[in-house]
Design a protein around this nucleic acid. Structure first.
Ligand SMILES: [Mn+2]
Ligand SMILES: [Mn+2]
Ligand SMILES: [Mn+2]
Ligand SMILES: [Mn+2]
Lengths: 223, 223
DNA sequence: CAAAAAATTTAGGCTAGGCTAAAATATTTT
DNA sequence: AAAATATTTTAGCCTAGCCTAAATTTTTTG
């Protein structure tokens, strides 16, 4: 490991993990965008992470990075903290689901393993956070995720909402408003070829809603 | 203010506040000891804090520092966070009173004002933390503290324990063991001139205990 | 497939907040 | 009131993590 795993390093690894989940290697630019940092700064850090002992990422110039086993452990630890914290804030302090992300983003680096264990216990060892995102187990294994973007559904398909992206509070409030929350069933009434809009019926809601891809790409469902 | 009030600055101001509470100005050395930092480094920071706009401390070479109004506000904010957190950890996550200090020392810099307000609400706006230490109000006023060290009592005096120093977990466990906790009444059975030992009877405890000054200087009582 | 555009890296610099060693000032002892 | 000791400050250095500007790939496009 680098002598010490700083807060900054934890953030790099967490975001690299999430980028790796989508496409393959995480690009310098994508990391920079996520962290709100200049690309040149990212390059410097990637070189450092790659030459740490043990290395935390695998880095080849101009080809982005993937996490090593060591790097992944660190990332999963941070993600577990983050998601348990979000659950804890909602359950114990009455936060709304659109208010927890920023708070958890700061706390995730600071709580002890004892704090983590006590939260997990108090919450009954949950496997998903308030947004439906999977929580890595105490021994840092990420459960398999079968879900696909709502945007990939077509007319007449039915599905169950599993999780929603949690980094835009305004989107979260809107989704709550229209009943698009985890474990709710939906059916696609119409797909528009031109703009990708989906008209869907949400279980328990009176009227249909039309959602653009900006929304449907952030909602994940199981068919 | 310095452009930003870093975690480091918060720690300096918090410890300067506590040192000011005892004697007058806080000395470079005392601050260095508390923060576990070289005295030379402290000098540098004091100069910075003194020349910030507005200044956070009043500093005269070789004479230590006191807080300005601005500096005190920052210190009280951090102390309020710390003490509310300690209470919250005990009440909500079942921490023992000797386990909360280190956790709170990290979290105090990271929680939002919203988090602070939610904790205060959930706890019923407490005025003392688990060690009996006073919690500054939401508008950052520190309640008056009348208590004096247990060490200052003499034979036949009675008193009520109000607070105990919280930075030594082993001492806290020992105090809990012998029933020396806030709001408990005691009576001094004997004072030894030579070593300063006090023999005291603790309300609700069968036998008397003899306490040295290492202990009695860390326990504060109201007569 | 060459030229333009985009992405990435290098080079050089900056601030925060530490450190040690040596110099200066205060305080205590004799 | 010196001398010795303790405290504090200065000077010079270092690392972590950022930055911008310029150089270098890599990718896209006409
Ligand atoms: Mn989140
Ligand atoms: Mn989440
Ligand atoms: Mn404490
Ligand atoms: Mn306390």
């Amino acid at each position: 490991m680098p002598e010490t795993i700083t807060q900054s390093i934890q953030d790099y690894l967490k975001h690299i993990y999430e980028l790796n989940e989508n496409g393959g290697a995480a690009s310098t630019n994508d990391i920079a965008t996520r962290l709100n940092i200049a690309p040149a700064s990212v390059t410097g850090m990637l070189q450092k992470l790659a030459s740490a002992t043990p290395p935390l990422v695998v880095y080849k110039k101009h080809q982005g990075v993937t996490l090593t086993k060591s790097g992944e452990k660190v990332a999963l630890e941070v993600i577990r903290h983050h998601r348990l914290l979000e659950s804890f804030l909602v359950n114990t302090l009455g936060y709304a689901w659109d208010e927890v992300h920023n708070e958890a983003d700061k706390l995730e680096h600071v709580i002890s393993e004892d704090f983590e264990a006590r939260m997990a216990e108090a919450l009954g060892h949950p496997t998903r956070d308030p947004h439906g995102e999977l929580i890595p187990s105490a021994d840092l294994v990420m459960p398999a995720d079968e879900s696909c973007p709502l945007a990939s559904l077509r007319t007449d398909e039915t599905a169950t909402i599993r999780r929603v992206s949690d980094d835009d509070p305004a989107l979260l409030r809107h989704l709550r408003e229209i009943g698009v929350v985890p474990e709710v069933k939906i059916i696609v009434k119409n797909y528009s070829e031109f703009d990708g809009n989906l008209t869907i019926k949400v279980e328990g809601q009176k009227s249909n809603v039309v959602l653009g891809t900006a929304v449907t790409s952030q909602v994940f469902v199981d068919k």
